[in-house]
Design a protein around this nucleic acid. Structure first.
Lengths: 226, 226
DNA sequence: TCTTAACCGGACGACACCGTCCGTTTAGGC
DNA sequence: GCCTAAACGGACGGTGTCGTCCGGTTAAGA
């Protein structure tokens, strides 16, 4: 019980501080979901029933807050990758990976915004976690292709394409689960080997680093207006 | 020549006013492309080399500015729909419609943001233009399906799904044309009749009104933070 | 119970953007 | 060249967010 709340609230803090930390994270998810990732910090503090100072003390930058608020979702993504790799049917693993990630984007509203914000430029920190994720994905893709289920010209960066575009869709149309599910269905169908008809244009040069599949939490702010 | 510049600048204005109006629109596209649709109005004015008052006099709300700045793109979309309908090969028409719209989103940076901002809740104004567009699209879809090229379970709202998700992608990754083209290729392939394998989840309930295909310019502000 | 270090949160100054007001300039008809 | 209506743009007050500071409060060990 104590263990539980300390896991949520964070270790090494006084009881009240731990409690507040937990409240802030819950409030942050709610506020971000409702008003987007750019919602005022004060709104989060108010919702959590704490002062702004407490919020800033615990999370000095908005980025820290976003990262912490969606750490659980990031972890779920990372776990999905591991599970996908463990699945004896590589296509089913791949399919579930995509579906799990998209479901998260769909259900935890703010997560989508956090996802894109997180994406663009990744840093070197936690490089080993990223590389492992990248390697795992590569393995998964190759295995699914070898099984004849995933089309041969699928490129790992296409996963980023799929997730980012889905992200955009749920951002534009929150609450429209049908649209999201349709897109996922279309994309998964077009990734199947049988769907390969004409040649595809060359894949993007994007690296997979940046995808939150690594659960390491190296994020960057979305492009500033400066 | 005079005709030309009056078309750009707007009619019934003094020469200097017309000139400034044109400058503002050019500046707006540049600034929106660089800093997003939420860029400060003052930045647009500065870039155009005019005072803020001039900007506000010509475009009382940011929405008016956005609408005017991307009117040309909206028109191109509308024209693409007409041309698609005129194409003797309905699939080619459909394909070009999608490609044209996506190309615009890709190339004119700010347009994507304007597109999503424009989308969500449409109003009744210019209802006849919307309805015509909606009707045209329906015709195009049915014709392409009858020709056996477009899958039978394609729903007109899927076009919105495609365009909005593509929009999200180019917003997340501007300058990555490869990613955009990949997505478009995947989507178009999955819309082909041959690609239909399993059943799709039910289509979204979204109406097509709101899609900028009508070139009527009834827009709304993106969701406020309030 | 007492002490103290950790924690809390309201208040505050700084800053950016908004949209208007008003004195000045200029286009273009006479 | 003159006159006037139209257009211009700098400046300004208003608003909302940021992030810090500091005096009061409380958890928890002695």
């Amino acid at each position: 019980m104590v263990e539980e709340s300390s896991r949520i609230g964070g270790p090494g803090l006084r009881a009240d501080a731990r409690r507040n930390r937990g409240r802030i994270l819950v409030a942050a998810r709610a506020v971000f979901a409702e008003h987007g990732i750019d919602a005022p910090m004060a709104a989060v503090a108010r919702r959590a029933g704490v002062g702004v100072a407490t919020l800033y003390r615990r999370f000095p930058t908005r980025d820290d807050l976003v990262r912490a608020a969606f750490a659980q979702q990031m972890e779920t993504c990372a776990r999905a990758l591991t599970e996908a790799l463990a699945d004896p049917d590589p296509w089913r693993g791949f399919q579930r990976l995509v579906e799990t990630a998209c479901e998260l984007q769909r259900e935890e509203q703010g997560f989508s915004a956090a996802f894109v914000a997180a994406f663009p430029d990744s840093t070197v920190e936690h490089a080993q976690a990223r590389e492992r994720a990248e390697r795992d994905l590569m393995t998964l893709v190759r295995r699914a292709q070898a099984a004849g289920a995933l089309r041969a010209d699928f490129h790992p960066s296409d996963l980023a394409v799929a997730l980012l575009s889905h992200c955009g869709l749920v951002t534009a149309l929150p609450r429209d689960g049908a649209a999201s599910r349709r897109l996922v269905a279309y994309l998964l169908q077009s990734f199947r080997a049988e769907a390969a008809h004409g040649a595809l244009p060359p894949p993007s040069a994007l690296s997979l680093r940046g995808l939150p599949l690594a659960a390491d939490g190296s994020r960057r702010q979305r492009p500033s207006k400066n």
